[in-house]
Design a protein around this nucleic acid. Sequence first.
DNA 1: TCCTGTGAATTCGTTCACAGCC
DNA 2: GGCTGTGAACGAATTCACAGGA
Lengths: 231, 231
Amino acid sequence: MTTRQIPEASVARLPVYLRALVDMAERGTHTVSSDALAEAAGVNSAKIRKDLSYLGSYGTRGVGYDVEYLIHQISRELGLTQDWATCIVGVGNLGKALADYGGFAERGFRIAALLDVSLGKVGEMIAGMEVQHFDDVERIVKEEEISIAILAVPGAVAQDVTDRLITAGISSVLNFAPAVLTVPEGVSLRKVDLSIELQILSFYEQRKVAEESVRRGTARRRLDAVDPPLA
Amino acid sequence: MTTRQIPEASVARLPVYLRALVDMAERGTHTVSSDALAEAAGVNSAKIRKDLSYLGSYGTRGVGYDVEYLIHQISRELGLTQDWATCIVGVGNLGKALADYGGFAERGFRIAALLDVSLGKVGEMIAGMEVQHFDDVERIVKEEEISIAILAVPGAVAQDVTDRLITAGISSVLNFAPAVLTVPEGVSLRKVDLSIELQILSFYEQRKVAEESVRRGTARRRLDAVDPPLA
DNA sequence: TCCTGTGAATTCGTTCACAGCC
DNA sequence: GGCTGTGAACGAATTCACAGGA
């Protein structure tokens, strides 16, 4: 354990472990084995041990991990011991719901500003906070020391808005807009795309229907003439 | 091209390609090379070619892909040529926003029911649709032939609700609840977790701050005594 | 004996590089 | 000449399997 490069896939699982651990702590559990944590997090136990080993040797052989201690270490590693100021850009349906959603504050993500360009929305109060005009983004980002932006604008303007956010000093973007964004090196970007998720489910759902009809013997040759020759 | 097993990672990218292609079609583009599509989708062009080759040989060497034709093939592969009935379970802030969000219908995902257990919410009209009681889930799923459920309930009840949805005949779940769900084989599950995404950004954000201070020479030894020996 | 921590083996995904066709 | 389709090379992530400490 000397290198400090945690694989991305591993980083993405830490919050899941953390949540499971917090649940356990609340239920009064003090010690947990990789097997038990694996069960709670829905992954394989070897993966847990490997992931945790990237953080350091925090377990005890023959015993397991101390729940509180592990919570502390993972939180620290994830940067959750400090709090981060965020802004929500675009207060349409989704932006509004995100603003109202309590789940962010819970883990140290303070919503420091709501921004929009629509004059109808600017000035409106949402979740006890006034919507401000996006034109003031530079000032607001600086004043509030915002580093993370939550983007809930229409896809068509998402890239422009992002460029301006980055110019204003934002260095992480969580994108809910249905658009592929490009950001300069050094800026982190994650995407949540609701309709893409549904389309992925649709793919597997269709497979099931197809298999089902094969089993039932009711499978039909597809009408589409250009299907690849074999199944 | 005879096998029909498309890698999961590849399936997850098809909707992204599809969106880029639809944009292009709207702008009047008829033909696209893997390079151009790669650019629009934000991936490497070899990946595009490999992904598309899983669907069949739909390109023309020396020319590229026919945009309309590719849209058709990807849509078909993703099962978007039929439409899927979905239900939203839990109409709190997020559920409501999802119900109002137009982006689902756009690609053939019809919201056929809104369900909740709160008597205060049952009967309420959201996006022109009446909220029904979750107790009627079996009847509703059958009547509307719903196969996909969008779960926006509190984490604590998510597993119970899921179990009941599956008993009622649901075979795909898009989970927005902050909980690890277990589903039987044959049921598809995807998760969207807002606070996990922020935590991942936080991790990388923290790294940047740390590197920054190293560059500036203002790095400090961490106070935490159990840090691994080296950075 | 129990459970962690980790090399080794394996699987999965990406990228390279070029033959083959337009 | 240009671009697809795909084996082969590479790299990342997962899982195995077990040595070693409590």
